[in-house]
Structures are given as C-alpha cells and as structure tokens.
Simulated scan of single mutants.
Amino acid sequence: MRWWTTGVVAMLAGCGQADEAPPPANPTRDEPVLPMASPTPETLVTIPTRFVGTWDSDGAACGAPAPGPNRLVVAAGALRIADRDVPVRGITVADAGAVDVDVIGDRGGITEQRRYRLALGSGGSLEMTGVDGAVRLLRCDAPAGAEAAARNAVALNLAPDGLQTVAGASSRTLAFGTPADIVLRVVEAATQTIPQRSTNADCGEGPLDIATYPRIAIYFQQGRFVGWSARGRGLTTMAGVGIGSKRAAVEAVIEAPVEDTSLGRAFTSGGLSGVYDARDNVSALWAGSACIAR
C-alpha cells in the first residue's frame, strides 16, 4: 500500500550507518589499528512529553476538519502522520534535547525503516528533520499538551551539593560531578525548555560551560556538573530558600551567617551561598562553581 506522499511524509529517509573512521597514516607493524567504537546513543522507552501532542503547519491546518499531509500526532510510543499510523521501532537521545525516532513504513510493498529527528524550536514549535531538510510545525493542542506536561512534571529543587528532583513519589539527587548530559536531560524535563549554551573562559576555577534556562543557570567543567545559580523566583531548596525569600525566613530554616562582601551582604550555609538586597530579600543564590567573584 502506497502512503508516502507529500509534506512531512516526504521527508522520510533511510538510516544509513556512519562510515568507520579511516585508520591513522603510517601505522606501526607492532600496533594493529582497530576501528574506533562509535558511542552508543542512549535509548528511551517513550518519546519525551515535550514532543507529545498534535502538530501541523499553521493554525488553519490545525483547524481543518481532515488532517492534511503535514499533520503529525506524537504519542508516547507512536506517531501518526496525516491519516496513517507509523510503527515506532526505536527512540534514542540526540544532541541539544532532540530525539531520533526510528519508524517502519511500507513503500510500494517494500518495508523500509526511516528516521525522524524531533527538536523543539523557537516559540514552542517543533522541527522535524529528515534527509530532505527540516519542517517547522506548530502545536495544535496547547492546552492538552500543557496538561500532559503537568501530569509528567518533574519538580526541581536547589541543593548545596547539586540539585534534587521529585517525580511522583520518587526523588533523585543530581550531585556535583554528575555527567553533563544526564543533568541537561533532567533539567530540560523539569523546565520543559531547551537551554541557551555558552562558555565563560574568565572564571578563576577555569573555563565553565553554561546552560541557561529561564529560572536557573547550570555550570559544567570538563563534561561534569559543577555548579548552579538561580535566575529569578520559582526554584527553591527543599527548605523553601530561593530568590525573594526574606532573611528572617532563611535564618529560620538554615544557619547562614552574613558578611559584607563586594557583592553586598552575603550569606553562606554549607555549600549554599546568596546575597540579600536592601530590603533583606534574597537577590542572588548559587552553589558550587558558578563564577561569582566575592
């Protein structure tokens, strides 16, 4: 049955294997050159919640009574393109919060495997990339998508030695030293956003790679999680300390001596550091290596 037509469907392409890297020139006779092992992408059981929902090319297409060629419905373990269900064979983590979804389709009576890359774009759009390029789709079901995200929400808490997450009845600690890719995926799931990436080469502790989210900046060094700094209200420690907290409330839950520094009236408690403004509200909060001079 022939159902690979136009629009998003036309982007499907075969998933070829990457060529092995050529051996270095002039290998010694005593040291045989072996092909380098390619890193194995992390596999996922389901498509991440941020991609789940109904997508189409624009508002008019979303409101059409019948799905057009660019209609894409993403479920946790399945895709529907136009009016056809596409079996999913595998889901793997890609770069910068994207995922690769391998599917099986029938083309002219021949079963073929295809791969889509799903990535969030600007304004909450979805970019779906294949061998023919990328197609930008808009979410048709923002309320339903928001409800799905809320049901699967990961709560993020600040901690003196890293970050803590709570999902349902389970909690998890992301301690300093955790590999960067693990921390990025967890924080992305908690915030439902893709970070802006940058590097600060002028830190006393050495260059730091920075992932900046709306409410927190995460710092990495040599591929490891080394620090965080809060950005605006919203995130707190398990004890409730966060940007905007009153000094009295802070000192009621932790021992945090105050000293005058170049940053102002700063306090520390274990690995947690912060600054009070003129009204005794917490105006800055960080832990670990965050390139904040004192």
Rank of each mutant, 00 (worst) to 15 (best):
S269Y: 03
T237N: 11
L120C: 05
A167Q: 15
P87A: 04
V154C: 04
L138E: 15
A10H: 11
V183F: 01
G124A: 07
S269N: 01
I194A: 10
Y219V: 02
G123I: 03
G14V: 05
Y219R: 12
M128F: 11
D202M: 07
A217C: 06
T129G: 03
I47K: 07
A142D: 08
V86D: 00
D132I: 11
T193P: 02
A153S: 09
C140D: 02
R114T: 04
R71F: 05
R50M: 10
L184K: 02
D30N: 13
L138N: 07
R50L: 08
V253I: 08
A155E: 15
A98I: 06
F225N: 00
A25D: 13
Q113G: 09
P39M: 14
T165R: 08
I243M: 11
V275C: 09
G234I: 11
P160L: 12
M36S: 13
G123A: 01
G16R: 10
P207S: 05
T165A: 12
M11E: 15
R80H: 03
T236F: 10
L138G: 14
A290V: 09
G7A: 12
F176L: 08
N157D: 13
V226Q: 02
G53H: 03
R107T: 12
A201H: 11
E147D: 10
I218G: 00
A290P: 00
F220N: 00
S229H: 10
I292G: 06
A256R: 02
E255K: 11
V241E: 06
T129M: 09
I81E: 05
T46P: 01
A60Q: 08
G168N: 02
D202S: 10
C291D: 04
F51V: 02
A25M: 13
T43K: 13
Q221A: 11
A290N: 05
G121C: 09
N70A: 09
C62Y: 10
T178F: 04
M128H: 05
A167I: 05
A94Y: 07
L120M: 14
T46Y: 11
G90F: 04
T165F: 07
G121I: 08
L263C: 13
A148V: 07
R139C: 09
N200F: 09
A75C: 04
S273Q: 15
T92K: 10
Y213E: 02
G223C: 00
M128Q: 11
A159H: 14
S122P: 03
A60K: 08
I81P: 03
P143N: 01
R50D: 06
G124E: 05
R139V: 01
L156P: 00
Y276K: 01
G59K: 11
R172P: 00
L126C: 03
V131D: 14
G130L: 13
P65E: 03
D161I: 08
V187R: 02
L285R: 12
Q221E: 04
G63C: 03
N281G: 14
G204P: 01
M128I: 15
T191H: 03
T191D: 05
N157Y: 15
L158D: 06
A153L: 08
D260A: 14
P179W: 09
G121D: 04
R197D: 09
S170E: 14
A98N: 05
V99C: 07
I110R: 14
R172Y: 12
A119H: 12
R233G: 08
A284M: 15
A180L: 07
Y116G: 03
W3G: 13
G7S: 07
G59N: 11
T236A: 13
A146R: 12
D58G: 00
V74T: 06
